[in-house]
Amino acid sequence: MLQIPCPWCGIRDESEFSYGGEAHITRPLNSENLTDEEWADYLFMRKNTRGAFLEQWQHAQGCRRWFNIQRDTVSYKISASYKVGEQPPQGMGNEK
Protein backbone atom coordinates (compact mmCIF):
# COMPACT_ATOMS: atom_id res chain seq x y z
CA MET A 1 0.00 0.00 0.00
CA LEU A 2 1.45 3.34 -1.07
CA GLN A 3 1.82 6.30 1.21
CA ILE A 4 0.64 9.38 -0.62
CA PRO A 5 1.51 12.94 0.34
CA CYS A 6 -1.64 15.08 0.15
CA PRO A 7 -0.56 18.71 -0.34
CA TRP A 8 -3.21 19.71 2.21
CA CYS A 9 -3.01 16.97 4.86
CA GLY A 10 0.43 15.38 4.55
CA ILE A 11 1.31 11.72 4.17
CA ARG A 12 -1.59 9.29 4.38
CA ASP A 13 -2.24 5.65 3.45
CA GLU A 14 -3.29 4.89 -0.10
CA SER A 15 -6.59 3.49 1.11
CA GLU A 16 -7.73 7.06 1.87
CA PHE A 17 -7.35 8.09 -1.76
CA SER A 18 -8.98 7.42 -5.07
CA TYR A 19 -7.14 7.42 -8.35
CA GLY A 20 -7.89 9.84 -11.15
CA GLY A 21 -5.59 8.83 -13.99
CA GLU A 22 -3.20 10.91 -16.01
CA ALA A 23 -2.82 14.55 -14.97
CA HIS A 24 -2.61 17.71 -17.09
CA ILE A 25 -5.15 16.75 -19.71
CA THR A 26 -6.92 19.97 -20.56
CA ARG A 27 -10.50 19.89 -21.72
CA PRO A 28 -10.67 21.47 -25.18
CA LEU A 29 -12.77 24.63 -25.21
CA ASN A 30 -13.46 24.60 -28.92
CA SER A 31 -14.79 21.06 -29.11
CA GLU A 32 -17.15 22.12 -31.93
CA ASN A 33 -14.19 22.62 -34.18
CA LEU A 34 -12.42 19.39 -33.33
CA THR A 35 -12.42 16.38 -35.61
CA ASP A 36 -13.62 13.08 -34.19
CA GLU A 37 -9.97 11.99 -33.97
CA GLU A 38 -8.95 15.08 -32.02
CA TRP A 39 -11.88 14.71 -29.63
CA ALA A 40 -11.20 10.99 -29.22
CA ASP A 41 -7.59 11.81 -28.39
CA TYR A 42 -8.76 13.95 -25.47
CA LEU A 43 -11.46 11.49 -24.48
CA PHE A 44 -9.83 8.11 -24.72
CA MET A 45 -6.10 8.24 -25.31
CA ARG A 46 -3.91 7.89 -22.23
CA LYS A 47 -0.24 7.19 -21.91
CA ASN A 48 1.01 3.97 -20.40
CA THR A 49 4.24 5.35 -19.07
CA ARG A 50 7.01 3.19 -17.70
CA GLY A 51 8.78 5.47 -15.25
CA ALA A 52 7.97 8.94 -13.95
CA PHE A 53 4.29 9.72 -14.48
CA LEU A 54 2.14 12.69 -13.50
CA GLU A 55 -1.23 11.59 -12.22
CA GLN A 56 -4.29 12.83 -10.34
CA TRP A 57 -5.50 11.58 -6.98
CA GLN A 58 -8.32 12.62 -4.70
CA HIS A 59 -8.01 12.50 -0.93
CA ALA A 60 -11.45 10.93 -0.86
CA GLN A 61 -11.48 9.81 2.79
CA GLY A 62 -9.80 13.01 3.93
CA CYS A 63 -10.01 16.60 2.72
CA ARG A 64 -11.59 15.53 -0.62
CA ARG A 65 -9.13 17.64 -2.56
CA TRP A 66 -7.91 16.65 -5.98
CA PHE A 67 -4.17 17.07 -6.50
CA ASN A 68 -1.33 15.76 -8.64
CA ILE A 69 1.66 13.60 -7.90
CA GLN A 70 4.68 12.40 -9.81
CA ARG A 71 4.99 8.65 -9.34
CA ASP A 72 7.38 6.17 -10.86
CA THR A 73 5.25 3.38 -12.29
CA VAL A 74 8.06 0.86 -11.84
CA SER A 75 9.35 1.59 -8.35
CA TYR A 76 6.15 3.32 -7.12
CA LYS A 77 8.35 6.03 -5.66
CA ILE A 78 6.47 9.33 -5.38
CA SER A 79 8.81 12.23 -6.05
CA ALA A 80 6.46 15.21 -6.07
CA SER A 81 3.01 16.23 -4.90
CA TYR A 82 1.40 19.52 -5.90
CA LYS A 83 -1.93 21.29 -5.98
CA VAL A 84 -4.22 21.51 -8.97
CA GLY A 85 -3.26 24.52 -11.05
CA GLU A 86 0.39 24.34 -10.02
CA GLN A 87 3.10 23.40 -12.46
CA PRO A 88 4.71 19.96 -12.39
CA PRO A 89 8.32 19.69 -11.17
CA GLN A 90 10.94 21.32 -13.37
CA GLY A 91 11.37 19.57 -16.66
CA MET A 92 8.54 17.15 -16.06
CA GLY A 93 5.51 16.62 -18.16
CA ASN A 94 3.57 13.73 -19.61
CA GLU A 95 4.96 14.15 -23.11
CA LYS A 96 2.79 13.11 -25.98
Binding site: Q58, A60, R64, V84
Partner: peptide, 13 residues
Protein backbone atom coordinates in the same frame (compact mmCIF):
# COMPACT_ATOMS: atom_id res chain seq x y z
CA UNK B 1 -21.21 14.33 -5.78
CA UNK B 2 -17.61 13.25 -6.49
CA UNK B 3 -18.09 13.96 -10.18
CA UNK B 4 -19.19 17.53 -9.46
CA UNK B 5 -16.33 18.09 -7.02
CA UNK B 6 -13.85 16.90 -9.59
CA UNK B 7 -15.01 19.25 -12.31
CA UNK B 8 -15.11 22.16 -9.92
CA UNK B 9 -11.64 21.51 -8.54
CA UNK B 10 -9.72 20.41 -11.60
CA UNK B 11 -11.34 21.97 -14.66
CA UNK B 12 -13.40 24.96 -13.53
CA UNK B 13 -11.75 26.30 -10.36
Amino acid sequence: FSWMERWLQTEWP
